[in-house]
Amino acid sequence: MLKKRIIPCLDINNGRTVKGVNFENIKDAGDPVALAKRYTEEGADELVFLDITATNERRKTLTEWVSLVAARINIPFTVGGGIDSLLTAQEVIDAGADKLSINTSALARPALVQELAGHFGTQCVTVAIDTNYVDGKWKVFSHGGKKATNLEALEWAKIAADLGAGELLLTSMQGDGTRSGFSLDLTARIAAAVNIPVIASGGAGCPADFEQVFTQTAATGALAASVFHFGAIAIPELKQYLKSKNIAIR
């Protein structure tokens, strides 16, 4: 039986892991390679790395740390941040990433999803959607949650899937870093509307939150950052808890 995936997410800034709350107030959370290795040993099913470095040096540091991670860990990992062309995508894949996560660049030019899927296969392309509940609608945001778009999350999810995304990484911005639980209605609606795997993200605070997202929505993966980085939830105990609730877990 296919297992539900527990996915720690590492935001990387200038080669360090960082984490904020609601996409703000960024704190240092350690060396990404050491953290990645620890999570792998603890039983993480996949890892996601999002490079939020805002400097021109980003591409160079990106491929450097992706190579370091690839040399040290033996579980799949996704890399996002600044991938806006086949060329940058190829550099990240050559450095050893298994999947590419694209967000702002896909919103700016949706054909990028198609190009990457055509070149690397749909399984390689994760479209990350950052969304927040504004005036009664789940609006999509770009630029790391800073810019509102006119798109609604459900609409963009369907477009991305049709263009060849192999997976969606759905982040509820109002949940991000708050530990108030995943946005279940949003996740349920989107996961039911597409025929590709959906990873729920934003708001994980306790093991019961993971249980809810796996029992009340069709998400096949759940992503979290701060609860893992700062020790609120240990992956082995989380997995034990979910197994005790009869959820399929490795």
Partner: peptide
């Protein structure tokens, strides 16, 4: 077949 989640992505026994 169509109508299911594809790709088959994740850990399976």
């Amino acid at each position: 077949p169509g109508g299911y989640l594809v790709p088959h992505m994740g850990w399976n026994n």
